[in-house]
Simulated assay, not measured.
Amino acid sequence: MQDITTALEEMIDRHGLTHVVAGLSLICSEKADYIRANFQDRVTAKAWDADARGLLQCARLICTDSK
């Protein structure tokens, strides 16, 4: 757990929290697309899409709050 925490902290320091959270949102969205295309698993893809939307909303709030 320490390794991932350190890696995330370094990414946040380098790129900013908004960009890291937005990047996670993009990864979730791409995972949803991959699952839909390769496994035809709509339930799992829908969960990844919901995570993507939630993270994107968080990124927008972080960006708004930091101004």
Rank of each mutant, 00 (worst) to 15 (best):
A22R: 11
N38W: 03
I35D: 07
G23L: 01
E9T: 11
V43C: 03
K46E: 11
D3Y: 11
K67R: 12
G23K: 08
T18Y: 03
K46R: 07
M11W: 02
V21E: 01
L55C: 03
R60M: 08
L61V: 05
V21N: 01
D13R: 13
L61A: 00
I35A: 03
A7N: 04
A22Q: 06
A47N: 15
H15D: 12
W48H: 04
T64E: 09
E30T: 11
C58A: 07
D33F: 14
A22E: 03
G54P: 10
D51N: 07
R14M: 09
A22D: 12
L56G: 04
D3T: 07
A50R: 10
D3P: 04
I12H: 00
A59S: 15
I62T: 02
Q2P: 09
Q57M: 08
C63T: 15
A32R: 12
A32Y: 08
D3C: 06
M1I: 11
F39R: 09
I27R: 05
L8R: 01
A32N: 09
K31S: 12
A32Q: 11
T5Y: 12
Q2G: 05
C28R: 14
F39G: 01
I4D: 07
T44K: 13
G54Q: 14
Y34T: 05
V20W: 06
D33N: 11
A7K: 13
T5E: 15
G54W: 06
Q2S: 06
Q57P: 01
C58I: 11
H19W: 11
R42Q: 13
R53D: 07
V43S: 04
M1Q: 14
L61M: 02
W48N: 02
S29E: 13
L55A: 02
D13K: 14
I27Q: 08
L55P: 02
T44C: 08
M1H: 14
Y34A: 13
A7R: 07
T18W: 00
A7C: 02
V20Y: 06
R53I: 08
D33M: 14
R14F: 01
T5C: 09
D13M: 14
I12P: 01
A50H: 00
I35H: 05
S66A: 15
R14G: 04
M1T: 12
H19P: 00
S66N: 10
L55R: 12
A47I: 15
A47R: 15
E30V: 08
D49Y: 06
V21H: 01
R53T: 08
S25P: 04
A22M: 10
I35S: 07
R36V: 06
T64G: 01
V21L: 03
T44L: 14
C28Y: 15
T64F: 05
S66V: 14
D51H: 00
A52V: 00
C58V: 06
T5V: 05
I12N: 02
L8A: 03
L61K: 03
I12C: 02
G23D: 10
V21F: 05
W48P: 00
M11G: 00
V20D: 13
L55T: 01
K31R: 10
